[in-house]
Design a protein around this nucleic acid. Structure first.
Length: 594
DNA sequence: GCCGTTTTCGGCCCGACTGTTTTCAGTCG
């Protein structure tokens, strides 16, 4: 039983507690907090429990520690089983309907005993829900709409899908002269890998009247590609976009903009301790501003930018990507936040394919596209022979490719550099798809799993650790193989993998493809603390694919990475030296070991 | 259920919006 498993049990308890008749929201929150506390713990949970090291962890009190110990030692938590037995499954399902929460669910369940969402839908159509005390026609209609929304739309979207939609609307709104400031907020601004909806905040000058606001809202709700308008007012309008994503636009006066933007950027988890801090300092935060409380009256503290809010709380500015309540407030108070990596730090591409394997562009075309984007090198990494489905290279193909690279490098001398790399398959037993004497000819070796996804976690972990132990391994690519909203990753002990990679000096990439974003940012963060180097790899199969680096940078920033943590912020010469030293050190170590 | 630089009890972030109600409960972010 690992941390993630126990954490999800605690989360389930929280959800089930919410549905209890006499539920206590604070107890529920305690379980949610404990789940998060557990996830960000370092080390093996079983050991932590055995050594009684959980005591003192913020968010874990005596009771929660007992629950965690029970889960680890017994494999189950008694009160979870009890809650499950006493909570009809349909209640949990109903939690997914927008606008419906625990209280309404319990009322509907007690009156109508639906067995499924379909039953509930029928009850609405039969006008039975509107007759429940405290309910009415409008609530019934809203529930029907909520059910329809559930049936038509996924409840989460990949970052890139939402970002593209948001960017289109942002660009359109930016043409309006009435708008002073304009920002995307919400989880999209925090660069979460998936998002539920799009939040946007715009400001009008403080003297602006109703007309300006109305014009903005009308312009917004009449944009092309809007499926339906679910709300339209002077401060907030809501629509559903063609892709099925819900979007809210808020209009505020410019002096309120920083506070409103901050509020709607979240996360909720970040705001709770932040507001507690404000409270302790005799202040209060709401979406309209930061206020000093004296003698019971509130005095506005003027903030022109979000950074002013943090400054007033004696904090360094906290970038949106970090606002997840994973220690950023404490770090900001001690002025220990990292300087986060940016696109302008990136010097070259590591992990791209060409027509030699399954890429759609020739090496030369990929090179030109890199030059166009301001990069000074391309670390080419076509597939190895085991990846037959992807046109993996034979040993002869590799030598042929090297010749072409040598030729091109001579031609490009001084302007650009192609690095000889490979994306080498990790075979079922953890050995690599090419012999070491061939691997020695590459400038760098990326290794990754493309087969045998269904090994046991122990086997899969052993397989990966063996690949890490090969002294020619430079980088692990897409370590879990997950496809966001598609397929779960291989089950393996990622913490052991991150530990081993950091210890051995092997890099783990952030695969920047928006369907992967793997290594996960939570693990990026843990790896960074152990000295792991994390290149950002677009895994480009086309020239456009090179632009996916953008998504990888968002994840790198969420993982608290600075430029020095990301090897492809180095110049080509420095990077080649980095790989060379890495290999020499590891060869020396492995010969000592033998 | 957690937590403590006045506290071991009594707080726990905060306000908008909506709908159902005549003063508030539920939901959301």
């Amino acid at each position: 039983m690992d941390k993630a498993q126990v954490a999800s049990m605690l989360e389930e308890i929280a959800s089930l507690l919410a549905l209890k008749a006499d539920s206590n929201v604070f107890e529920q929150r305690a379980y949610e907090n404990a789940a998060r506390a557990l996830n960000s713990l370092d080390g093996d949970l079983t050991q932590l429990v055995e050594q009684k090291k959980l005591k003192g962890t913020p968010g874990l009190g005596a009771t929660l520690i007992k629950r965690v110990e029970e889960a680890v030692q017994e494999g189950h938590i008694a009160i979870l089983n009890e809650l499950r037995a006493n909570t009809p499954a349909v209640k949990l399902e109903m939690m997914r309907i927008p606008g419906v929460g625990p209280k309404k669910i319990n009322a509907m369940y007690d009156e109508l005993h639906p067995k499924s969402i379909a039953d509930l839908e029928q009850a609405c159509k039969d006008d039975k829900v509107a007759k429940i005390p405290g309910f009415g026609k409008k609530t019934q209609e809203k529930i029907l709409q909520g059910i329809a929304f559930l049936q038509q739309h996924a409840d989460r979207f990949r970052f890139d899908v939402a970002f593209t939609e948001a960017e289109r609307i942002r660009a359109a709104l930016a043409t309006l002269p009435e708008i002073v400031r304009l920002e995307v907020a919400g989880s999209l601004r925090r660069r979460r890998e998936t998002v539920k909806d799009i939040d946007m905040v715009v400001s009008v000058s403080d003297g602006a009247g109703q007309d300006e606001r109305e014009k903005i809202m009308t312009f917004f709700t009449s944009q092309p590609g809007i499926l339906s308008i679910t709300g339209k007012g002077l401060t907030k309008s809501s629509v559903v976009l063609a892709s099925g994503i819900a979007m809210d636009l808020r209009v505020v006066s410019d002096s309120q903009f920083p506070s409103t933007l901050h509020h709607f950027t979240g996360s909720r988890e970040h705001h709770i301790p932040l507001r507690r801090r404000a409270q302790n300092m005799g202040m209060t935060i709401n979406d309209y501003g930061l206020f000093k409380i004296s003698d019971g009256s509130e005095e506005l503290i003027p903030c022109h930018e979000e950074s002013d809010i943090y400054a007033a709380l004696n904090l360094e500015y906290i970038a949106p990507e970090l606002r997840e309540d994973t220690g950023e407030i404490e770090a900001a108070a001690q002025h220990k936040l990292p300087k986060l990596v940016e696109q302008s730090d990136m010097r070259g591409i590591l992990h791209a394919h060409s027509t030699y394997s399954d890429g759609q562009r020739t090496i030369r075309e990929m090179v030109d596209a890199c030059i166009e984007r301001g990069y000074s090198y391309l670390g080419l990494s076509d597939h190895s022979k085991a990846a037959a489905y992807a046109g993996g290279l034979s040993e002869d193909d590799v030598r042929r490719q090297w010749e072409e690279i040598d030729r091109l490098n001579a031609e490009l001398k001084g302007r650009f550099r192609i690095l000889k790399g490979i994306e080498c398959d990790i075979l079922k037993d953890g050995t690599l798809d090419f012999e070491n004497d061939l691997l020695a000819g590459f400038d760098f070796v990326i290794v990754s799993i493309h087969s045998n996804f269904n090994l046991t976690p122990e086997e899969q972990t052993r397989r990966m650790l063996r690949a890490i132990a090969n002294p020619y391994t430079s980088i692990i690519a897409h370590p879990t193989g997950r496809l966001l909203l598609g397929r779960a990753g291989y089950t393996l002990d990622m913490e052991a993998v991150v530990d081993a990679a950091a210890r051995e000096g092997v890099c783990i990439e952030i695969n920047a493809h928006p369907s992967r974003l793997d290594l996960d940012w939570r693990l990026v963060r843990k790896g960074r603390e152990k000295g792991l180097k994390v290149p950002i790899g677009p895994d480009a199969h086309t020239t456009e694919g090179l632009d996916d680096v953008f998504y990888g940078i968002g994840i790198a920033r969420k993982g608290w990475l600075s430029a020095e943590d990301v090897p492809n912020t180095l110049e080509a010469d420095e990077l080649l030296r980095f790989f060379q030293e890495q290999r020499e050190r590891r060869l020396k170590q492995s010969s000592v070991a033998h």
